[in-house]
């Protein structure tokens, strides 16, 4: 199998070096850049499958670089930035980044995200949509095989958890309250003080999400209910 290359671009060499160690540990080829301009140059000279990009850099900042890259390429871009405001994240994603990780990040989480993006990028178009498969981004529900996959990896769920995922996947983007989920999945009337649903949802998130506190698929709508986001 061809070795996948990741371009790491940050003006902080220590971070770049640490990420190199982690990425090499995951068997990725690593290219290093310290400014936006260097990143663009490296991108032109080498075959690169994913970019980790800082925002605040000299010569060319990460957002400008993202715009320039997106003019020609659709490789995954993960922004790593100390800017953790919602507005920063939204701006980064709008400029064309695929993911946004704020510093200080958990290296394992970052690696998970890199892998996730890489799988989707490399598997792009290879998986034909089979009937009976519900899909939202990297989350797949195979009702025939009773399987849930995230970025192609099978997730092991309990029957109740599976039931909840099926119910939410069948109604993608729709918000359901705890009581509604309970009645649908448990198939019996709901009583007020039931937080079993909430506990199950948390467990599902821990299994399917890279960072359960910032879920990508199974979203909490506080005070209203839960939904699986439609991608």
């Amino acid at each position: 199998m061809e070795r996948l290359n990741v371009l790491v671009c940050d003006d902080d060499t220590a971070i770049v070096d640490a990420l190199e160690i982690y990425l090499k540990h995951e068997n990725y080829g690593v290219l290093k850049a310290y400014t936006g301009a260097q990143a663009l140059q490296a991108l032109a000279e080498h075959e690169i499958h994913l970019i980790l990009l800082d925002i605040m850099m000299p010569e060319m900042d990460g957002l400008s670089a993202t715009i320039r890259i997106r003019e020609e390429r659709n490789i995954p871009i993960i922004i790593i930035s100390a800017k953790s405001e919602d507005t920063d994240k939204i701006a980064g994603l709008n400029f064309g980044a695929d993911d946004y990780v704020s510093k200080p990040f958990n290296p394992l989480e970052l690696m998970a995200r890199v892998k996730s993006q890489m799988r989707r990028y490399t598997a792009l178009g290879s998986i034909a949509l089979k009937s009976g498969i519900l899909k939202s981004g990297g989350l797949e529900l195979d009702r025939a095989g009773k399987e849930v996959r995230v970025d192609g990896e099978i997730i092991r769920l309990t029957p109740t958890e599976y039931g909840i995922v099926v119910f939410l996947m069948e109604n993608l983007g729709h918000v359901f309250s705890i009581a509604q989920i309970y009645e649908q999945v448990w198939n019996e009337p709901s009583y007020a003080a039931e937080n079993t649903v909430a506990v199950h949802i948390r467990r599902i998130r821990e299994k399917i999400e890279i960072n359960p506190r910032e879920p990508k698929y199974l979203k909490v709508v506080w005070g209203i209910g839960y939904k699986i986001k439609k991608y």
Binding site: D12, A14, I15, A18, L19, I21, Y22, A82, S84, S102, K103, P104, F105, N106, P107, L108
Partner: peptide, 14 residues
Amino acid sequence: LKTPLTSIINYVDL
């Protein structure tokens, strides 16, 4: 503060 902290966390993990 976050940038150096990122390195600290990463290298502690390593």
